[in-house]
Design a protein around this nucleic acid. Structure first.
Lengths: 241, 241
DNA sequence: CGTATTGTTGAGCGTAGTCAAAGTTAGTGG
DNA sequence: CCACTAACTTTGACTACGCTCAACAATACG
């Protein structure tokens, strides 16, 4: 059982795309779950592991990431409350990347069989889940462009636009000017930059009034300004935000 | 109707993962299709378009790509014969990226409804298709790492490893030492580099005996060598290769 | 209050980008 | 078959964005 409050962000996001029946919602709420807490930086999933179950993020922020042979971390995407962190694992044989907590996080762990069951009896739910995995894919594509073809200032701006838009769309933030709980190393690893250069670029964005900076977090002050800097267009989110 | 020969690469790839019944294969072969030819550089799909149908690549090479506001192209992945170029479009409302022919290409265009029908009556086919979209996602993740955290030499080596491995796995190449029909601009756009720097890096790889170069194509001479250079591991392909 | 983590700053360097021009190759049409 | 052209490749000179290394400062937290 998952309590209604915890499911709000998920339903809010899904209903931007299509209607869910109350039976569908109840089926989700009735899923057999185990709650688990993870401290900051803990691994929820490790690359190479055979997937056992599937986790819905209830609180906090997590990321997908890989670590190269030379030890560099590349963050591949972020999860916020209401996101499934490893839905793809229900079908794939082994995890191809790590999932790591950015802030302290709480998840609802759901057995693979229960997911299979709910998608079988509630096709709309299965469809919404498949759509989620397709949107993940679209987000990855946009990140390839971000890291491959934009400079440091644009990359960071783009990232901040995406996160604040998604937080607002899930109802986790009142407005587009939100507080993001990320340290500078996280931003560096998400944008393919070093921590030092990220620090300098963030200072430039603050100087220009686009963001505010504080310890382990930053505030989006001028979303439209960041949107211009990052050449941001929300198409790739497919109304997930 | 698609002739058996044209379906070989698709089936060969799918059967690395799981068995298909002969009914499943026949259902695929019996799909109502329209064959279409595209010249080099033509667009098969344009970003923003509402998806009408779905295309299976029969011959040639195509790529997913996006063009930034400043006009830079970023290639997101390559398709080879036997790949569906826009399976995700069957569910998403509008294309989030372009699909462009790298070489002259021939595709089998399949109506969305026919895809929906075959997945309904042949769950194993639906599963294989969903798996394909999940593997696409995994490939995108690896590309984020490639572009975000590797230097020019490693990026190019990694790309060449992926392509030659996939060509061999599909039966389109006898060995891992295959000819790749790509010009240097394509390689640059796939790795987030400029054409000039790509040219210089390719020369270095040729000097070291890893590849051969010719006009609009290159030959993989030392796959293991490239594998080392590119920190390549095939896990992310999930036995699609 | 001490310590680990995170953030900041400076100096120097190097990988990759930019601009420009010349050289090649394949294709086209005369 | 050859001249012409467009696309592609190669080379050089110069630039710059972002990286590395290193030291120090600030913050949180036990």
């Amino acid at each position: 059982m998952i309590d209604a409050d915890a499911l709000k962000p998920l339903f809010r996001r899904w209903e931007k795309r299509s209607e869910l029946s109350s039976a569908d919602r109840e089926a989700i709420a009735a899923l057999p779950v185990t709650r688990r807490q993870f401290p900051r930086n803990a691994y929820l999933v490790r690359e190479g592991e055979p997937p056992r179950e599937c986790a819905l993020l209830l609180r906090g922020t997590t990321c997908r990431q890989k670590v190269t042979v030379r030890g560099a971390r590349q963050i591949l995407s972020f999860h916020i409350a209401g996101d499934f962190v490893d839905l793809h694992n229900c079908l794939l044989g082994e995890a191809d990347h790590n999932v790591q907590a950015i802030t302290g996080a709480e998840v609802a762990v759901i057995p693979k069989a229960a997911i299979a069951d709910v998608t079988l009896h509630h096709p709309a739910v299965g469809r919404a889940m498949w759509l989620d995995t397709l949107i993940d894919s679209s987000v990855h594509r946009e990140w390839v462009v971000n890291v491959g073809r934009r400079n440091a200032r644009s990359r960071i701006s783009h990232l901040l636009c995406e996160l604040s838009l998604r937080l607002q769309a899930s109802g986790l933030s009142e407005s587009l000017s939100c507080e993001l709980q990320l340290n500078q190393q996280d931003i560096a690893d998400a944008t393919g930059l070093t921590d030092v250069h990220t620090n300098r670029t963030l200072h430039a964005l603050r100087r220009d009034g686009l963001i505010g900076l504080s310890f382990r977090s930053l505030k989006v002050l001028d979303w439209q300004g960041l949107r211009n800097e990052g050449e941001f267009s929300e198409r790739y989110l497919h109304h997930a935000a």
